[in-house]
């Protein structure tokens, strides 16, 4: 699991001291440095930089140089430099996204890495759905997610770096390749992918910036509601309804199954807020298609997570156990297909 040694922390602190000093144009002291997320290959570190008496709350996003990514991660996730430019474009367009500050250089030796401002709030669904401090926020989240998403999709493509274009047909082909690579026959996922293939929406003439992982767990919330949208590494160009469908996948409701919009509201509430904020009109059949797709997608991601352990690329009980969650999406897929579409 964790390779979080004191040596690694010391190295990161020293490099951050040099890099933040360069960026702010004065000697910076690094304080309260701590590793946030568990992944070995995609790290998030939180720290403060004190420059000329002013304290900056910051985040380091980092892919260490020596860590192997799986072929699938390389195929679907953008690199850190591209992520930095997507954040810059989205933030400049008024999206509630973290403000990216500067990139580290290869000479810094931390791998692909950049620094952004830290925003307050928590992402833990269990707390957001049940704890008293978020009582008032809970009623607002579905609408806010609709508004923010409309802004993401309105980002001017000319301000974006080169991003992969991914349409329905590309997604289906990718999931079938995944199933083939895993090697275990999966009748329910095959059924769902054929259903999806036969009904797939036509590509848009003008694809938009799709966040790609817009769901509960990937945004921060404080007492006032959603503060910022995180985890942009699956950003691509495509169908805006993809993000609306993914947000409504049952796995992100964390038990609040009667509130499809991330566990916080109805689909209609989400779509109304999206349309009112300037997003296009949402076709319910198209949204249903993307929700079915998202459900199959998450199920196959679960199988892939287990495969990372089984193939030896990451030794992790947690990854192994996620494989047994795939069946949850098989239950959901059979329910969704019964609803037609």
């Amino acid at each position: 699991m964790s390779v979080h040694t004191s040596t690694e922390t010391e190295t990161v602190a020293r490099v951050l001291g040099e890099a933040t000093s360069r960026h702010f144009g004065g000697p910076a002291t690094i304080d309260a440095l701590s590793r946030q997320s568990g992944g070995a290959s995609r790290q998030t570190w939180s720290f403060d930089a004190v420059v000329g008496g002013e304290r900056h709350a910051l985040i380091l996003r980092r892919d260490p140089p020596a860590q192997g990514k799986t072929a699938r991660e390389r195929a679907v996730a953008i690199d850190r430099a591209t992520e930095f430019r997507v954040l810059r474009a989205a933030h400049d367009a008024g999206v509630r996204a973290p403000e990216p500050l500067f990139e580290l250089t290869p000479q810094d030796g931390l791998g692909e890495a950049y620094v952004m401002r830290r925003v307050g709030g928590i992402a833990i669904a269990r707390k957001l759905l049940r704890d008293p401090p978020y009582e008032a926020a809970r009623g607002k989240i579905a609408g806010q997610l609709g508004e923010i998403l409309a802004r993401i999709h309105a980002t001017d493509p000319a301000t974006l770096p080169h991003l992969p274009r991914r349409e329905a047909a590309d997604h289906i082909a990718e999931l079938r390749r995944s199933l083939d690579a895993l090697g275990q026959p999966q009748p329910v996922f095959e059924l769902a992918l054929t259903w999806l293939d036969r009904r797939k929406p036509a590509p848009l003439e003008r694809p938009v910036l799709v966040h790609g992982d817009y769901r509960t767990g990937n945004y921060l919330v404080d007492e006032t509601g959603v503060t910022t949208i995180l985890d942009w590494e699956l950003a691509h160009l495509g169908d805006p309804v993809e993000d609306l469908g993914w947000l409504c996948v049952k796995s992100w409701r964390f038990g609040a199954i009667d509130r499809p919009a991330g566990g916080f509201g109805s689909r209609e509430e989400l779509w109304a807020a999206y349309e009112q904020a300037g997003g296009g009109e949402v076709d319910p059949a198209r949204a249903h298609w993307w929700e079915v797709f998202g459900t199959a997608h998450w199920g196959i991601i679960c199988l892939n997570q287990a495969w990372k352990h089984l193939s030896g690329s990451i030794r992790s009980m947690e990854h192994a156990s996620i494989g047994r969650r795939a069946v949850e999406t098989e239950v959901d897929l059979l329910q969704l297909l019964k609803q037609g579409g």
């Binding site: 009748p187 329910v188 059924l191 069946v327 949850e328 239950v331 059979l334």
Partner: peptide, 14 residues
């Protein structure tokens, strides 16, 4: 068949 299979699978997994 699929309903029955998945029903048995989820009874074990969750």
């Amino acid at each position: 068949h699929l309903e029955a299979t998945i029903s048995d699978k989820i009874a074990i997994a969750n």
